[in-house]
Computed example of a mutant assay.
Amino acid sequence: MGTPGAELERLVDIMRRLRAEGGCPWDREQDLRSLRPYLLEEAFEVLEEMDRVGYGGPLRPLCEELGDLLFQIVFHAQLGAEVGEFTMADVAKSISDKLVSRHPHVFGDLRGVEGAEQVLANWAKLKAEEKKRKTGSEGSVLDGVPVAAPALMRAERLTEKASRIGFDWPDLAGVRGKLAEELDELDEAIASGERDAIEHELGDVLFSLANLARFIKAPAEDALRMAIRRFTTRFQHIESELRAEGVPFGEATLAHMERHWQAAKVKEKALPPPARLPRAAITTVRLRVADLPAQRAFWDTVAPRLGWSTGRGGAEEAVYGDGVLRVVFQRGEAPSTGTALILEAPSARAVERLRAALEETRPGSVLQAREGRLDFRDPAGLVWEYTTSAG
């Protein structure tokens, strides 16, 4: 299996060849305008696959759909490169620089950040400062929500952005109360029969619902999409049953269709739970060690050879990670030993390089070494297995 960087380089080279003289006629004809529908289509296909995973489906097909979406990004970057504006490297550098600058609590010196809400507030402040440096104006905290986004999604994102500077309800009761108020006003508008008033108040109700969805962390766009999925499944059940009964198209009574609708709901509830729920990713492993300086000195040597970087932690911590998983060594009473921690090696050669480095710089730390596997002990007494066959 290649590294992410190598595979991305391969994809960029493939795209360059498709667009070059003698490449693919279809790819050579495309421009930014013609690619717009494909970008949307691939994004929606990723979303559909995410929904299937949410219902207990396999995760692997999502990989293919993400690849299709990535290809669209590489395609756009190639168009930028052809006119000398930017390359795929510039795209990656741009987002990397942005993430680093907007996470000073991770990559900088900012301390004392507690919870996601404070992170979002800092993000909004940093974004405004960036915009002021670029344009001379901080702009609006609401900037950045695409006008063309689905209305429910846009409403939720706008209220989320406003909340980052404190414009928000203090509790759920306030949000729910506002929805009740808007529903009352909609009833009054319906009673009046005035079309403009009805549209106005219905819009307020939908906006309040989107805000409620944000507050209870159940995105309105996702909830509605799942409701549409249920409606489609149930209605198609009605159609199937009516065909089986020989009822001519369009001639079933409402009561007849309602009976099949309720039967579809009962069948839906009787289905077994998903065979596999979406996985909760492990992001941090925290281990207590008695001698933190010795542990830090050891892992400052080992981490780079595993492709890990050194993170920022408190005075009583040593932090290392690969961008997904963080290993945090924290000063404290060490637990009893006996647990082996397994790390997957990219190749037997990588295992051999680490073995040689440990034997040179940390004599006695290697416990056992054989083809494709290395067992070693760190200063805290923790046993690590570095192997090409982790599973």
Score class of each variant (00 low, 15 high):
Arg133Met: 11
Arg28Tyr: 05
Gly193Asp: 13
Ala369Asn: 01
Arg154Cys: 11
Glu65Leu: 02
Pro219Cys: 09
Asp51His: 15
Leu212Met: 11
Ala281Ser: 13
Arg19Met: 10
Gly177Asp: 08
Leu39Asn: 03
Pro273Phe: 06
Val147Asp: 15
Gly332Ala: 04
Glu156Gln: 15
Phe71His: 14
Phe376Tyr: 14
Gly56Trp: 10
Arg305Ile: 07
Phe207Thr: 12
Leu40Gly: 02
Phe215Lys: 07
Val145Ile: 10
Gly112Pro: 06
Glu221Ile: 14
Glu182Asn: 15
Arg230Ile: 14
Ala281Met: 12
Leu126Cys: 00
Arg355Glu: 15
Val53His: 00
Gly174Val: 01
Val289Tyr: 09
Val289Arg: 10
Val351His: 02
Leu62Gln: 04
Ala6Ile: 08
Pro293Cys: 03
Glu188Thr: 15
Pro293Val: 07
Arg176Thr: 12
Leu206Arg: 11
Pro278Gln: 09
Ala121Met: 08
Lys161Trp: 01
Ala380Phe: 03
Val302Tyr: 10
Ser96Pro: 04
Ala191Gly: 11
Ala263Ile: 07
Ser347Thr: 15
Phe249Trp: 02
Arg326Pro: 03
Leu66Ile: 14
Gly323Phe: 05
Pro335Gly: 09
Leu358Asn: 01
Thr3Glu: 06
Leu32Gln: 06
Leu179Lys: 06
Met50Ala: 15
Pro278Val: 05
Val289Ser: 05
Pro346Phe: 02
Lys134Pro: 03
Phe235Arg: 15
Gly246Val: 09
Leu325Lys: 00
Gly372Asn: 10
Val383Leu: 12
Val147Lys: 12
Ala280Leu: 13
Thr253His: 05
Ile216Ala: 12
Leu126Asp: 06
Glu64Met: 09
Ser389Gln: 12
Glu316Asp: 15
Leu186Met: 10
Glu352Phe: 08
Val46Leu: 05
Ala180Lys: 14
Gly332Ile: 01
Gly67Ile: 01
Gly246Ser: 03
Gly166Phe: 08
Phe167Cys: 09
Val100Leu: 12
Ala280Tyr: 11
Gly22Gln: 07
Ala189Thr: 01
Thr283Trp: 09
Glu333Leu: 07
Met50Ile: 13
Glu316Met: 05
Tyr55Thr: 05
Gly203Met: 07
Asp375Glu: 00
Ala356Tyr: 03
Pro346Ala: 05
Asn211Asp: 15
Gln118His: 01
Thr301Glu: 13
Met15Trp: 02
Gly56Asp: 05
Ser101Thr: 00
